[in-house]
């Protein structure tokens, strides 16, 4: 019984994606009409400069935001896993709320912050890559912090204690023992933050400015108008890349 429902669950999760991939090779523009196999939409996609430009913006933002999120999230995760300090509750709420908080709230509030500080302090001048990066880094921070915190909770402290007993200064213990041991968690967190940033529509729409549209923003304005074969082709490429990376990670994980 539960096996049957498991199967239904997988069909439910994957059927729409499979059809999207199929349609991307459909020569016909219409969804339900099969006009023969064709890769023409891929050709059109590669000549679409709006999409190519937005892809570059998205990759730049995602790389920057994931890196900031990895650094700050690792520090936040360490503090949350290890210590009690004044204001810990506030800190922990701030560090984890972005995980589930509807993005329209965070997006609007960050935009209003940027508008206000620009008015009063003259910073940031206009909105664009910088402001989207800050928004995505704040979201990514929460994910990295959770992963790192979980990693530290299952951490053997005796190595740190041994290093301290042998006279290593605490910062050196943190840098040479703790960080390398939680590095896989940090890498997972970075990848999560990178993916979330590439995927985010709402935060980017609120915090972007003219000339800095991200890929999801371009996709969104295209699909709002209806089915778009070029977007099907783009989706197929993105899904293929993700499947490749995740499959490779899984295979490597098994071999060890």
């Amino acid at each position: 019984m539960s096996r049957v429902l498991l199967g239904i669950g997988y069909v439910f999760l994957y059927a729409p994606i499979a059809l999207l991939v199929l349609y991307s090779f459909n020569a016909s523009r219409l969804v339900a009409v099969w006009g023969g196999f064709s890769t023409k939409w891929y050709g059109e996609l590669l000549r679409n400069e709006a999409i190519l430009g937005a892809t570059l913006v998205s990759l730049e933002v995602a790389a920057l935001a994931a890196t900031i999120a990895a650094v700050l999230g690792t520090l936040a995760g360490t503090a949350l896993a290890r210590w009690r300090f004044p204001g810990r509750t506030v800190f922990s709420v701030m560090a984890t709320a972005p995980l589930v908080l509807p993005e329209v709230i965070t997006g609007l509030s960050l935009l209003l912050l940027f508008v206000s500080t620009e008015q009063w302090l003259g910073w940031p001048q206009g909105r664009g890559v910088l402001t989207i990066t800050i928004a995505h880094a704040t979201l990514g921070l929460a994910f990295v912090a959770v992963v790192v915190q979980a990693r530290l909770a299952a951490f053997d402290r005796s190595l740190e204690e041994a290093a301290l007993d042998l006279g290593a200064p605490p910062w050196k213990v943190y840098a040479t023992i703790t960080l390398p041991l939680i590095a896989p968690g940090i890498a997972t967190g970075w990848l999560l933050a990178f993916t979330l940033s590439l995927d985010d529509l709402v935060l980017a729409s609120f915090t972007s400015g003219p000339g800095s549209s991200t890929l999801p923003m371009v996709i969104f304005s295209a699909v709002r108008l209806g089915v778009s074969p070029q977007i099907n082709a783009l989706a197929t490429i993105l899904i293929g890349l993700v499947a490749l990376v995740v499959g490779l990670a899984f295979w490597l994980g098994r071999r060890r």
């Binding site: 999760l13 059927a15 994606i17 089915v227 989706a235 993105l238 995740v246 899984f250």
Partner: peptide, 28 residues
């Protein structure tokens, strides 16, 4: 488990859009 998590790594926007092709009046 991997197959449950995998969709989470692919674009949310594109997955919702995929349904419009299935559900529209002249959809699949």
């Amino acid at each position: 488990l991997l197959f449950v998590i995998l969709p989470f790594w692919t674009s949310f926007l594109i997955r919702v859009y995929a349904w419009t092709g299935l559900l529209r009046p002249n959809g699949t």
